[in-house]
Amino acid sequence: MKRLPFILFLLLSIFSFSQTLSSKLDKQTLALGEAGTLHIQISDLQAKDVLSAPKNELLPFHFEEIKDSINKQLNTYDRVVEFAVFEEGKFTIPALDFRVNGKVLKTIPYDIEVINTAQKGDEINDIMKNKQVDLGVQDYWEMYKWYILGLLIVLAVIFLIYQLIKYGRRKNSDPIVMTNQTLRELEKLKKKNYIEDGNYRLFYVELLDISRNFITKQYKIPADVLLTDDLIDVMKLNNTISPENEKIIEDIFLRGDLVKFAKVFPDQQDMQTDFDQLKTFVKRSSKDLEIEQLRTGV
């Protein structure tokens, strides 16, 4: 019996120094987007720390926290969370944990129903009447300037690409370019020593191929598909190649055909002469084209 007062005193001391958590939800039925408030209070703190979820992260996913304020005093802790829900249905705020000096305190869970208060056929009125604003040139420029600048950049890039392609084609079709290229091909033929070895058949086959390719590209005459007699006739009618150069081409092609069909057997002097004559013709071709441009007024 003597111990009973002591036990009662001990229990009263424990309860008198323990923390008390209370929570209050102002509404359990909300309209879509309507604000609700959850108030949480802990008393008898005795300057102890309170650990809980960070600000704006206390409530679960569907609850959009609008405001989360915490006020902690020496003996009290107040936290007020203002929130809204933007979906219809029933939602639950679960028991929330608050740790005080290693002890976990929990709020009670709350069920909330969110309803859509708008009715079908309700008239929706604007808060303010629409105001017509006159836009000036500067306003339209601010609205569309990036589209205009982007279009100008695209057009500039297209124009630049076109000029590069045009310049590249003009450069590749320049008579001097074709002349130099053919002269290099003749030098390669010279290094094969067909003349020194007396290999007249291969020499004339390659010499005529170089000649036909050059005439086709330089004078725009289809020498690569015409027979020798037809080519000579076309050159005379075309009147682009000078008479001196026509004579060189005619002699080389006629002799080349005779060699290919084994009717003549040229010596080294004839081969060297034809080689030198073709080289002279190639070098003089640009002069032919200049005269032709003056004649036609191009």
Rank of each mutant, 00 (worst) to 15 (best):
E250C: 00
N125L: 14
K279H: 05
N245A: 05
Q269D: 11
E292G: 00
Y219M: 03
S22E: 15
A118S: 12
Q218M: 14
K129C: 01
K247T: 11
W146K: 10
V264W: 02
P54F: 04
I221T: 12
F98S: 06
T240Y: 01
Y219A: 03
Q19I: 01
L11S: 13
L152G: 08
A31C: 02
K220V: 05
S16A: 14
L149D: 02
V80L: 11
G121K: 08
L74S: 15
T182Y: 02
L226M: 15
D78L: 11
K145N: 14
Q293H: 09
N193M: 03
V137D: 11
K106W: 03
S211A: 15
H39Y: 11
K283D: 09
G136N: 15
D44R: 15
V50W: 05
K90R: 12
D267P: 07
D122S: 12
K236W: 00
N116Q: 13
K191C: 01
K190R: 15
E57P: 01
D276M: 08
F159I: 14
G89E: 08
F98L: 06
E82I: 10
L25Q: 07
L38R: 03
T228Y: 04
G33M: 05
I176W: 01
V259Q: 03
I115Y: 02
V114Q: 06
Q163Y: 12
K188V: 12
L189V: 08
Y110R: 07
E290C: 00
I127V: 14
Q272I: 03
S173E: 14
K103R: 14
I115N: 09
D229Y: 03
P175A: 06
M271P: 06
P266S: 09
I221V: 15
F261S: 10
G136T: 14
R295L: 07
F63T: 09
P94N: 07
K263N: 10
Y140C: 05
K279Y: 03
D288K: 10
V85P: 02
L258M: 12
I221F: 04
N125H: 13
P109A: 08
I232F: 04
D288A: 10
S52E: 11
K67I: 01
E292P: 00
Y167Q: 13
V114Y: 05
E142F: 08
T20S: 09
R169S: 04
F83Q: 06
T216M: 04
K171H: 10
K190Y: 10
R184C: 00
I14P: 06
L227P: 00
L4I: 15
L294F: 06
L186E: 04
L189Y: 07
M1D: 11
Q119R: 14
T29G: 00
K217A: 13
K131P: 01
V133L: 13
N130P: 07
P5K: 12
I165H: 03
L227A: 10
R79Y: 09
D78G: 03
V177K: 13
S211W: 01
I115R: 11
S52N: 10
S22H: 08
I232C: 06
Q268P: 02
N75K: 09
L96W: 02
F9A: 15
K106H: 13
